[in-house]
Amino acid sequence: MIMKSLFTTAAALAVSATALSAGEDSVLSVEGQTFVTQATAPAHAENLSEVFSGWVFRANETQALQLDDFDNPGMVFVDKGIDLFNAVDGSEGKSCSSCHSDVAEFAGLRAQMPRIVDGELQTMEEIINAMRVEKMGAEPWKWSGTQMTSVTALISLQSRGMPVAVDITADGAQSFWDRGKEIYYTRVGQLDLSCSNCHEDNYGNMIRADHLSQGQINGFPTYRLKNSKLNSTHARFKGCMKNVRATPYKEGSDEFKALEFYLASRGEGLSIESPSVRN
């Protein structure tokens, strides 16, 4: 039933098969690598039978922007990330590359994030800032600023095409996962909506002029057409909470970290697409 509305809408938006459009039956393939954008839902997502990447819900023209690494506007920020990775910064006179000689060594990291380390929930932004402060003697970066998103995009790219592999069975994971799930299903704000009201109950439907996705985060950090830049998950969560007229949690807060953990697990089966292109 939901699937029908999804494909009907996609067909309605179909345009001629030029370089601009991906076509409604298209498969996501980048640089010869195919991505899983549709999979059987993990058992713990009890109200879903299938999971879909956000890519599937976008108009043909938006989908097409992700098909080639020179069409994808997020990739110029990956280039910036490379510059930042190699730049010396801080009192210790080091760059990231001083210790991490090849960024490809991070293959697989993004697929596991966020992760439990010594009983604590850790996001990629926290790893990067811990390195900067403790090892480089440098200032921490803002959670969703250009520098941080450029480097998380670079590191995430090393996992592109890999399946989401967040580990929710690790020691100490349960309480964070439960908290994230609770937040996902709690109504907030003046509009009194929970994440699930739109992204579980109504994905595939239109909300005004927007085609609702499942709110999966397998493509983050994502280049949004709306603000012409890379967006972190927490920046996106903030935007969603503002849209329902709720006071958002802070980026880097326990609430958003728990939500990110829970949401990552709802994407099990999908491929990492970072840096993706969304509206």
């Binding site: 020179f70 990739m75 110029v76 280039d79 910036k80 510059d83 250009t146």
Partner: peptide, 8 residues
């Protein structure tokens, strides 16, 4: 600031 080209 931060202007960076990318060409294929």
């Amino acid at each position: 600031s931060g202007v960076k080209p990318r060409v294929k």
